[in-house]
């Protein structure tokens, strides 16, 4: 089965209104599927739910003078109904991102999740674990209304797995079977998201013939990847 798509537009063409989309990366330029995001902006799907570490930041982890496209552009364009994130707003209150502006206007919803719980919920979603207990967040706003239970003297809160219709990732390189290798700190959420979506789309710097990535460095095995596109 051919996984290689010739353009990002083609790779995101079937995203329907109301889709749940995981977006990889930590928030900065590295690991951010910038071309897929731009293509989705042009494609125009609405009422999206975005699951990502941030709420779309401009300038975080970006080289000075360069423009990083993040899911900020999908929020700005009004395509997003809900954001699931650990770091939704800019570090500086005086420079609000598009998410914060629309959130204050009641135009976008937020599910705020501690970062480790977010990672584990996505991991669980891809691994067939429906829910798990964690000590993170006990006694705080994120535990409100959730079941708690004491294990070995420690109170824990029940958190549910996250799944998505699509995951958009950026990896360093792929082979035609869909195996992915990442670079440096740009791995973060991407290998987890690849497992938790019905359709995982990877934007990569290069697509190699099968066998050209050392099996020892494959961080996302091709079984999880449906579509590849060279950026």
């Amino acid at each position: 089965m051919n996984k290689v798509f010739l353009s990002c537009a083609e790779a995101v063409a079937d995203v329907p209104d109301g889709a749940v989309i995981m977006i990889g990366g930590f928030g900065g330029a590295g690991g951010m599927p910038q071309c897929l995001i731009q293509a989705l902006r042009e494609q125009g799907a609405k009422n999206l739910t975005i699951i990502s570490n941030t709420g779309g930041l401009a300038g975080f982890g970006a080289l000075s003078g360069s423009v990083t496209i993040t899911h900020n552009v999908l929020i700005e364009s009004g395509q997003v109904r809900k954001v699931v994130a650990s770091f939704p707003v800019s570090a500086s209150p005086s420079r609000p991102n598009a998410f914060e502006v629309l959130y204050r206007q009641g135009k976008v919803e937020l599910e705020l999740v501690p970062q480790g719980t977010l990672a584990e919920r996505i991991r669980a979603g891809g691994a067939g674990i429906p829910a798990f207990y964690t000590p993170t967040g006990v006694g705080t706003a994120v535990a409100q209304g959730k079941e708690t239970r004491v294990f070995y003297g420690q109170e824990c809160v029940l958190e549910h797995a996250l799944k998505a219709d699509y995951a958009f990732l950026r990896a360093n390189r792929a082979d035609t079977t869909g195996n992915l290798a990442y670079k440096g700190t740009s791995r973060n959420f991407s290998p987890l998201m690849a497992t938790a979506a019905r359709v995982t789309v990877a934007e990569v710097d290069e697509i190699l013939e099968s066998g050209c990535i050392d099996p020892e460095v494959v961080a996302t095995p091709g079984i999880y990847v449906k579509r590849l596109v060279k950026r």
């Binding site: 650990s86 770091f87 939704p88 707003v89 570090a91 209150p93 914060e100 959130y103 204050r104 937020l110 705020l112 999740v113 501690p114 970062q115 480790g116 719980t117 964690t134 000590p135 993170t136 967040g137 006990v138 705080t140 994120v142």
Partner: peptide, 19 residues
């Protein structure tokens, strides 16, 4: 979170505090 802002970033802080 500063209560006056009404929205804030948790990031990894809750996991670090707990773990």
């Amino acid at each position: 979170m500063l209560s006056s802002r009404g929205v804030g970033n948790i990031g990894g802080a809750m996991d670090l505090a707990a773990g």
